[in-house]
Amino acid sequence: MSETSVEYFPPTKPWEEFASGVKLIGMRCSHCGTVAFPAREVCSKCGRDDALEEKVLQGPGKLYTFTEVHVAPAGFPTPYVIGYVDMPDDVRVLGQIDGRVADLNIGQDVHLRIGVIRARKDGTQVIGYRFTGEAK
């Protein structure tokens, strides 16, 4: 596979791979303490833009709810599971989750990994963060 056949989502690749596993990079507003992912140019809670700092989101997250999607836009091979994951510091992250619906339970721990999330029409693989029930 050539380099040009891969792209990332989000394109800024807001994650880092540590020995302990993948962690997402969000932001924290040092005025009001709000943590958000992905980072943005203004704190959506207090509106300040002058005290935003990078924040490594700790894991694992807890699975709030999920579904198995059977009808999806082109490029998402069905079925696939997506769910909302509540990370520590009150940050919610949506992502695809490995496995089938019967393998998962609300409230369980899920861990980040980097993998394929969809394919473009020309076959380009889109790589991004996703979740798995297996700890690294």
């Binding site: 709810t65 999607v69 009808v71 836009p73 997506i82 949506l94 695809q96 991004g128």
Partner: peptide, 29 residues
């Protein structure tokens, strides 16, 4: 056909979110 198209600049549709999935997740919860 299919589900109503999501808005490509928003994050969730890029990760595989579709309208039925939003309500399906509410239902499961």
């Amino acid at each position: 056909g299919g589900t109503i198209p999501g808005v490509e600049t928003d994050i969730d549709p890029n990760l595989g979110m579709v309208m039925p999935a939003v309500y399906a997740m509410r239902a499961r919860r």
